[in-house]
Amino acid sequence: MTGSLLLAVLLAACGLAFIRSQERRRLVRIVKASAITGIVCYLLGCLQVVTTIPAHACPDLLEPRPTVHLVRYESGLLPPRAICHWDNGARKDFVSGWIDPLLLTSAAVLTAGLVAALVLSHRRHRNHRNHQEGHAR
């Protein structure tokens, strides 16, 4: 668990490294950083899903007559998940717990950045057009 949290902090730090630069390009860098962070995070989650082998990851108890049996193995890539469910209610998730929150955060920052860029572009276009109309009079 500590290793996966360390990896999450390193990924966030790499994303923030893209943001630190010129003031005028900060929004573009935020959009790039959130997109890159989200893509890398998603790929790491998918890697954890495809490398999980249910027969090895989700065994019944190692007894001649196990009292707890595997009920089902659930996996998927959107969102990345690989979960074993046993009949006693226990479950084990093989995708790191920080993957989903970091994916959602990256998607939210990306969406907010794109909306902000669209609004700023619209304002610039409108101000430029108003400026040209003022000179035409």
Results as ranks from 00 to 15, higher is better:
L61P: 00
G76W: 07
D60M: 06
E63A: 15
C46R: 11
L70M: 14
L43Q: 05
A33T: 10
V49P: 02
P80T: 09
R26W: 15
L47I: 05
L61S: 10
L78R: 03
G45C: 10
C41Q: 09
Q22N: 13
Y73W: 07
V31G: 00
A35W: 01
T52H: 00
G45V: 04
L47K: 06
V31Y: 01
L78P: 01
R65T: 13
I39Q: 01
V68G: 12
L62Y: 12
P80W: 03
C41P: 02
T51I: 10
C84R: 06
P64C: 03
L77C: 06
R25D: 09
I30P: 02
L61N: 10
V28C: 07
A57D: 05
P79R: 04
C41S: 10
Y42T: 15
P59W: 10
V40H: 03
V68H: 11
L78E: 02
S34G: 14
D60T: 10
P79W: 04
T52M: 04
V71P: 00
S75V: 03
S21G: 15
Q48V: 05
C84I: 04
L77I: 14
L70K: 07
P66E: 08
R25S: 09
H85W: 11
P54D: 05
H69R: 07
P59G: 10
R65F: 13
I39V: 15
P79L: 03
V28E: 14
P80Y: 04
R26M: 12
I30F: 09
V49M: 01
Y42W: 13
A35N: 05
V68M: 10
V49H: 03
T37R: 01
W86T: 15
R25G: 05
R26S: 14
V40F: 01
H56I: 08
L47Q: 05
C58F: 02
G45S: 11
H56Y: 07
E23W: 11
V68D: 07
I36D: 05
T37C: 12
G76L: 09
P59V: 12
L77Q: 03
I36W: 08
E74K: 03
L27N: 09
C84S: 10
K32V: 15
W86S: 06
S34P: 03
T67Q: 14
T67S: 14
S21A: 14
P66D: 12
L43C: 09
I36K: 02
C84N: 07
I53C: 00
P66T: 05
C46H: 04
T51M: 12
L27V: 13
R81L: 07
A82T: 07
Y42E: 12
R24N: 09
S34L: 06
I53M: 02
S34A: 15
Q22I: 03
L43P: 01
Q22L: 07
T67D: 03
R26I: 14
G76E: 13
C58M: 08
I30D: 03
P80Q: 06
A82W: 11
K32Y: 11
S21E: 13
I30C: 11
H56S: 14
E63S: 14
R81V: 11
H85L: 07
S21Q: 14
I53G: 00
H56L: 12
S75F: 08
L27I: 11
R81Q: 14
V50N: 05
L61R: 02
G76I: 07
A33L: 04
G45R: 01
Y73T: 11
A33I: 00
